[in-house]
Amino acid sequence: MVNIVSATMKKMIEYFDGDVKRINHALKVYGFAKSIGELENIPEEKLKILEAAAILHDIGIKESERKYSSSAGKYQEIEGPPIACDILQEFILSKDFLDRVCYLIGNHHTYSKIDDIDFQILVEADFLVNIFEDAMEKEQIKTIKQKYFKTNTGLCYLDSMYCK
C-alpha cells in the first residue's frame, strides 16, 4: 500500500512544477508540523491529517495568482481546498479526514478559526518557516510568539531558532 503522505508530497511537487521556492516552503512546513505533532503526542489520525494539510497548505497559491494576481492568504484559502481534494481523491480517505484537511487548508491564514491541536500546529509550523523566509524583525517575532504560539514544542523551536 502506498504511503498517503509520500504520495501527496510527490503530487504537490509535480503540481508546483519547478517552483522550487514553493516546494521547499511546503516541505519545511511539513517537517516542522510532523515533528511538533509527534513530540506533542497528538493522535495518529490527527497527525496524518496534519501532515497532509501541511504538505498542501499553500496549494491554492498558483490559482490565486492566476485568478486574482495575488498570493494573499484569503485567496489561497478559497482556491486551496478544491485543488487539495483533487490531489487526495485517488486515496481511500474518510469524508471526515478529507473535510478536515480541506478545513485546515481553507483557513490556515485565519487564526481566529484555530479549533484544535492540528490547526494550532499547522499555524506554528508555517510561522517557523515564514519568519525566516520573510526575514522578520525581533519585535514582530515577539508579537507572533505571544499571539499565536501555544505548544511546548513550537515555543521551544521558536525560542531556539529566533529568540536567542
Rank of each mutant, 00 (worst) to 15 (best):
A7W: 03
K28L: 14
Y30M: 06
H25R: 11
E44W: 02
I59C: 07
V101N: 00
A33P: 10
L93M: 12
E14Y: 04
S35W: 02
Q76N: 14
I87M: 09
E77T: 01
I78H: 08
D17E: 09
Y75P: 05
V101W: 00
I23S: 11
L88C: 08
I83F: 03
C85V: 13
Q89P: 03
A7L: 08
Q89R: 14
Y30W: 11
I87H: 07
K11T: 05
Y15T: 13
F91C: 02
S94C: 07
G80N: 04
E90R: 06
A53Y: 02
Y15V: 06
I59K: 02
E77D: 10
H57N: 15
F97C: 04
K46D: 15
A52N: 14
K11P: 03
Q89A: 13
L27E: 14
D17P: 03
A7G: 03
I36A: 02
M9Y: 08
M9I: 06
A84H: 01
I49A: 11
G73P: 02
K74A: 02
V29G: 12
E38N: 06
V101F: 00
I83R: 08
E51D: 10
H57G: 05
E14S: 11
A7I: 02
I49G: 03
I23G: 06
D17V: 05
Y15N: 09
C85K: 14
P81R: 00
L39M: 15
L93Y: 04
D19Q: 06
G18S: 09
P81L: 00
D99G: 05
Q89D: 13
I36N: 01
E44A: 09
D86N: 11
A72R: 06
I23Y: 10
D58M: 12
G60I: 13
H57C: 06
D86H: 03
N24S: 12
V20W: 08
Y30C: 13
A54N: 04
K48G: 01
K28V: 09
F16P: 03
A84S: 12
I92Y: 01
I83P: 09
A26E: 07
A72K: 13
E63L: 15
M12S: 08
T8H: 07
K62S: 12
I61L: 08
N41K: 15
I4H: 00
L27Q: 14
I59T: 02
P43E: 14
F32W: 15
A7N: 10
D19G: 04
P43Y: 11
I61A: 07
Q76V: 15
T8F: 06
Y75K: 06
M12I: 13
E77V: 05
K67S: 05
E45D: 15
I36M: 10
D96Q: 11
V101D: 00
V101M: 00
A26H: 11
I78W: 09
S6C: 03
P81F: 00
I59H: 02
D99W: 04
F32R: 04
R22F: 11
K34D: 10
E90V: 12
H57Y: 09
I13V: 15
I87K: 02
L93E: 08
N3K: 10
M12N: 12
A84E: 01
E44T: 13
I42C: 05
L56S: 08
E38W: 01
S6N: 14
N3S: 14
D99V: 01
Q76W: 02
L93I: 11
G80F: 01
S6T: 10
A33W: 08
R100N: 10
P81V: 01
